[in-house]
């Protein structure tokens, strides 16, 4: 056990102030996330990471747990503003505007940049109302029922729930709840969808369906996906960002090691660290 730990510690550390080679986006960028530092209180969770999210692509985040994948993801729609000790130093340019600009209300940011969380968190209301929640919030004037059904179908949960739309969302099983939450998030067709290990509680079939959904969503929208599953990254991510943990200065600060097209990251990585991580996970 400790042998493996030591190995991970060694390999996932760059000495000194390593900064990743900047990724050159090939297409238009929707969110240009440029992290200088992210703090929780005195704890520096992430440093120097520039991660551009390209339009109509799936951008994957991989890395050992605790390296700050969720932290970076949650910084991109100001979810972390809810954490009192959180402090963001840097810039997140969404289209033409910095979302951390003082004039910007985080509520508006979250309307355009939706989020699916790692653990299912349906509201204690009916399945239908869960999905319609966002539509009502956004004052949707069209056919609400049609949109709810559409979202449930795309989230691969329609067959499970079509006869019990009035039941509480909490009455579903864990995997079903997660798909309900995905339906809730996509019902308003958000411009960008952030997904934090959305499939970690799903069975392989549902996982495949969600992966198909991501590929489908990127036709019109943009997806950023944190995943622990290497195969999932290779299957759906067009671009992959690999993050590591820097323990050289006594802290446990995460940082971007390498970001590139997924095939390049997995088959011909630039950094030794990436190579070991990717190889280690496969074997």
């Amino acid at each position: 056990m400790s042998l493996i730990d030591d190995k991970v510690m060694d390999t996932l550390t760059h000495q000194g102030d390593f900064i990743a080679t900047p990724y050159e986006p090939k297409g238009p960028v929707v969110i240009d996330c440029d992290v200088k530092n992210i703090y929780y209180g005195d704890f520096r969770a992430v440093r120097d990471s520039r991660i551009p999210i390209e339009k109509n692509k799936v951008t994957g985040f991989i890395g050992p747990s605790g390296c700050g994948k969720s932290t970076v993801l949650r910084s991109m729609n100001r979810m972390n503003d809810l954490v009192e000790s959180f402090r963001f130093d840097g810039k997140v340019q969404y289209h033409d505007h910095d979302i951390y600009d003082k004039k910007v209300d985080p509520v508006i940011v979250r309307r355009y940049i939706g989020m699916v969380f790692q653990l299912p968190n349906p509201f204690s209301m009916s399945i239908y109302d869960n999905v319609a929640f966002g539509l009502r919030l956004n004052n949707y004037k069209g056919d609400e029922e049609e949109m709810v059904v559409k979202a449930l179908k795309r989230a691969a949960i329609w067959n499970d729930v079509k006869d019990k739309l009035k039941n509480s969302g909490l009455s579903l099983s864990g995997g079903q709840q997660q798909r309900l939450c995905i339906a809730r998030a996509i019902a308003t067709e958000p411009d960008v969808l952030l997904m934090d290990e959305p499939a970690s509680a799903l069975d392989p079939i549902a996982t495949r369906q969600i992966e198909e959904l991501m590929v489908e969503l990127k036709e019109d929208y943009t997806v950023a996906l944190v995943t622990h599953n290497m195969q999932q990254a290779t299957r759906v991510a067009d671009v992959t960002a690999f993050m590591g943990v820097d323990i050289s200065k006594g802290g446990r600060t995460g940082y971007l090691v390498e970001m590139n097209e997924t095939r390049k990251v997995f088959e011909d990585p630039e950094q030794e660290l990436t190579k070991e991580y990717v190889r280690g996970e496969f074997s």
């Binding site: 004039k103 910007v104 309307r111 949707y140 019902a187 067709e189 411009d191 019109d220 929208y221």
Partner: peptide
Amino acid sequence: FDPFKASASDKTLSMPP
């Protein structure tokens, strides 16, 4: 203040409050 609507995907149903 909503600098995002104009450039967001035109298919999105998202609206500012």
